[in-house]
C-alpha cells in the first residue's frame, strides 16, 4: 500500500495532525508526503523522523496552501500513483482534499477517526450524529482513495527515520484556483499551551453568564492548572471568545488528561469533541444536564460560587 500524506507545517515544524497521520500511515504501508510552503529542509527532516521517505514540495507563491496542495498532489499522482492520500481535517486540509477530489474525479471520505487496510481494500471509520453512531465506509472505485481524518484520531510517535528526500514538483496548469492570494496574516495573542496539545483543558459555556466572566473563571483556572482554555459553540457564536477556542464537532477535538466543563450543557456536538478525555469534571447547576453522563466528577452547583472558591483553594496551595 502506497500512502501519500498532505503535510502542513507552522514555522518549519509539521503540525501535530500531520505527525499523527504519518505515524498511522507507516503502520499501513510505504509513506511519502506532499508539502506546500517554506523551510523545506526542516520539514523534510521532521517528516522523515515520522516515517516519510520522500517529500514532494512546491512553493505557494502567495496562494492558499491547500489550493496549491491540490495541484501538487495531482502532479504527484500523475507520475507515481499512490493507493491512498490522507489529509487532516483542517482548514487547509479541507481545501486541498476538496479541490483534488474534483480535479481527479475521486470521492472523498471525511471526518474519519480510523483507517483500515485489508489487502487492496481501504475503509474509513467516522462518527455521525454527534458521535452516537460509528460508520465504516469502504472505497469501491479506482485509486487513489482520498480521506480526511480528524486531528487527535491517532497518537504521533517518531520512528527515528532519516530525513525525507526532497523533490521539487512543477505544478503545471493551476487554472484560476491560485488566483486567491493571501495578503496578510493576523495572529491573535495566546498564552500557555495550545488547546489541542494541553494536558488540561478548562472550557466555559453559556452558564458562565457573560463574556466578562470568562477571564476570572475559565482563563484563571486554566492558567492555575497550566492548561488551556476552551469554549462551547454557544459562547463563540455569541462573540464572547474567538472561534479558535471552540471544542466540538465544528471546533477542535481535544483529548487531555483532564477536561473541566464549566456551565456547559453537554450537547452531542460538544461531547464529540471532548469525551475522549481521560478524566472529566463538570460543574453545572442543572442536575439533569447531559454533561453529567460523561463526567467522572459532576458538581451540581453554580459556577459563580464553586469556581472562585476552587481558585482560592488552589492559590492557597501553591
Amino acid at each position: 500500500m502506497k500512502i501519500l500524506v498532505f503535510a502542513e507545517a507552522d514555522n518549519g515544524a509539521p503540525v501535530t495532525s500531520t505527525l499523527e497521520l504519518l505515524t498511522k500511515a507507516r503502520a499501513l504501508g510505504d509513506v511519502e508526503a506532499a508539502y506546500v510552503g517554506s523551510d523545506v529542509d526542516a520539514v523534510a527532516a521532521a517528516v522523515g523522523e515520522y516515517g516519510a521517505t520522500k517529500l514532494y514540495t512546491a512553493d505557494s507563491q502567495g496562494s492558499l496552501v491547500g489550493v496549491v496542495g491540490a495541484s501538487l498532489i495531482a502532479a504527484v499522482i500523475a507520475v507515481g500513483q499512490p493507493d491512498l492520500v490522507l489529509f487532516a481535517q483542517t482548514y487547509d486540509g479541507r481545501d486541498a482534499v476538496g479541490r483534488l477530489s474534483a480535479r481527479i474525479d475521486r470521492p472523498v471520505l471525511t471526518n474519519g477517526y480510523s483507517v483500515t487496510v485489508d489487502g487492496d481494500s481501504v475503509s474509513i471509520g467516522a462518527q455521525v450524529f454527534g458521535g452516537r453512531v460509528l460508520v465504516e465506509t469502504q472505497f469501491t472505485g479506482p485509486t487513489p482513495h482520498l480521506a480526511a481524518i480528524r486531528p487527535k484520531s491517532f497518537v504521533a510517535e517518531p520512528s527515528g527515520g532519516a530525513a525525507a528526500t526532497i523533490e521539487q514538483v512543477d505544478l503545471g496548469e493551476t487554472g484560476r484556483s491560485t488566483e486567491a492570494k493571501v495578503l496578510d496574516h493576523h495572529v491573535e495573542e495566546r498564552e500557555g499551551p495550545k488547546l489541542e496539545e494541553a494536558t488540561i483543558v478548562v472550557s466555559g459555556g453559556r452558564g458562565i453568564g457573560s463574556a466578562e466572566s470568562y477571564g476570572p473563571l475559565v482563563d484563571e483556572l486554566a492558567q492555575l492548572l497550566k492548561g488551556a482554555s476552551g469554549a462551547s459553540r454557544a459562547i463563540v457564536d455569541a462573540g464572547w471568545v474567538p472561534y479558535s477556542k471552540q471544542v466540538g464537532q465544528t471546533g477542535k477535538t481535544v483529548k487531555p488528561k483532564l477536561y473541566i466543563a464549566l456551565g456547559i450543557s453537554g450537547a452531542t456536538q460538544h461531547l464529540v469533541g471532548m469525551k475522549g478525555s481521560d478524566n472529566i469534571i463538570a460543574i453545572n447547576k442543572d442536575a439533569e444536564a447531559p454533561i453529567f453522563s460523561v463526567a467522572d466528577l459532576g458538581v451540581v452547583g453554580d459556577v459563580q460560587k464553586v469556581v472562585p472558591k476552587l481558585i482560592e483553594a488552589l492559590k492557597a496551595k501553591s
Binding site: 507552522d10 492558499l64 483542517t90 482548514y91 488566483e179 486567491a180 492570494k181 493571501v182 495578503l183 496578510d184 496574516h185 493576523h186 495572529v187 491573535e188 495566546r190 474567538p242 472561534y243 479558535s244
Partner: peptide
C-alpha cells in the same frame, strides 16, 4: 477574513 488556527488571514481574489 479567513479563519485560521492562529487568528485570520486576509485573502483576495
Amino acid at each position: 477574513q479567513r479563519q485560521t488556527e492562529a487568528g485570520y488571514d486576509v485573502v483576495e481574489a
